[in-house]
């Protein structure tokens, strides 16, 4: 008799736990406006990434097409994956001195792990992390970028 009562009790208890679970799902079913889906391409206009979000390495330029990069190559040394290559060139300053400046700051986005070490190491703050995250392209070659814009020059007063 005792085992029979236990048998019945186990059935009822089991059913009860199932009902408790069903209550949880039902709660969400009947409040469909609380959904968590983000409809991505549609919400693109309102989608703002956090300011620290690491999407890619960029080199900000002023409106005079000036940047802060001296071409020192510290970012290149700090990069663990070899995704940065600095190509520098020599120019003659007005004073007649030879000076090495940046020619091309090449950035391989395809190899980058976005670890932030280059940005952290940059002594002049020339490169920062951009928030763009839509990097899909049809050709892998497009992932290799030159960060300094053509014709740009280093801003006045950047300490070398």
């Amino acid at each position: 008799m005792k085992s029979f009562i236990e048998y019945i009790a186990s059935i009822l208890k089991g059913l009860w736990t199932l009902l408790v679970g069903m209550k949880v799902t039902a709660k969400y079913f009947f409040t469909p406006w609380n959904h968590v889906t983000q409809q991505y391409p549609e919400n693109r206009d309102s989608l703002v990434m956090f300011e620290r979000f690491r999407g890619e390495v960029i080199m900000p330029h002023t409106e005079n097409n000036e940047h802060l990069c001296t071409g020192c190559g510290i970012c290149e040394i700090n990069c663990p994956n070899g995704s940065i290559e600095i190509i520098s060139k020599s120019i003659l300053t007005p004073e007649g001195k030879k000076k090495r400046i940046i020619d091309q700051h090449i950035y391989h986005l395809g190899m980058c792990t976005l670890c932030n070490l280059c940005v952290k190491a940059c002594p002049t703050g020339a490169i920062v992390m951009g928030q763009k995250f839509e990097h899909a392209v049809w050709d892998r070659a497009l992932l290799t970028k030159v960060l300094n814009q053509p014709g740009s020059k280093i801003a006045e007063g950047v300490k070398e």
Binding site: M49, F50, R52, F53, R54, T113, L114, C115, N116, K120, M129
Partner: peptide
């Protein structure tokens, strides 16, 4: 994580000697 560390999973937030930010 994303707000503080800049990434959601591969955070790289610790550095030897402290934190990244």
């Amino acid at each position: 994580f994303e707000e503080t560390c800049g990434a959601r999973m591969t955070v790289s937030y610790n550095t030897p000697g402290g934190l990244m930010f």
